[in-house]
Amino acid sequence: MSVKQVSVFLENKSGQLADVCAVLAENGMSLRALSIADTKEYGILRVIVPDADGALEVLRRGGYTCKLTQVLAVEIDDRPGGMAYVLQVLSEAEISVDYAYAFISHKAGYAHMILRVSDIDETVKALTEADIRTLEMDSLLTE
């Protein structure tokens, strides 16, 4: 009940993000979602792509330091309070979130949230008990 995310180390220099996106584009890889964490000196690019293993391979060949991370994709209602509800459930279960980012679903009325947590199984259990749906890669791409 989790999806693979590709994380890439990038130095804070102009053109770095453009270069890494160009590598993915050249290999016909489309991005479903992305987020960037940045500091003064470097950034961490996190992307969801249909073929995470393939993306890792082409990025490695391009000389990037990158790795796969298992993250949770959660379906939320696209309305005020939709995301707050999910976070409240996690908070009550005493699960802390390392990072999160969200994007609109293809399905009207819904959005998706990507979450990194330390214990995926425990998190899925807490979400399922609260009737919150977690998505596999297939449904994340199509919905």
């Binding site: 994380s7 180390f9 470097y42 996190r46 330091t65 990158c66 790795k67 390392d98």
Partner: peptide, 16 residues
């Protein structure tokens, strides 16, 4: 120092 895959983590907290 060039960051290696073994030492790369995807959160700022761990890299710091």
């Amino acid at each position: 120092v060039e960051v290696t895959e073994e030492q790369f983590a995807d959160t700022v907290r761990e890299l710091t």
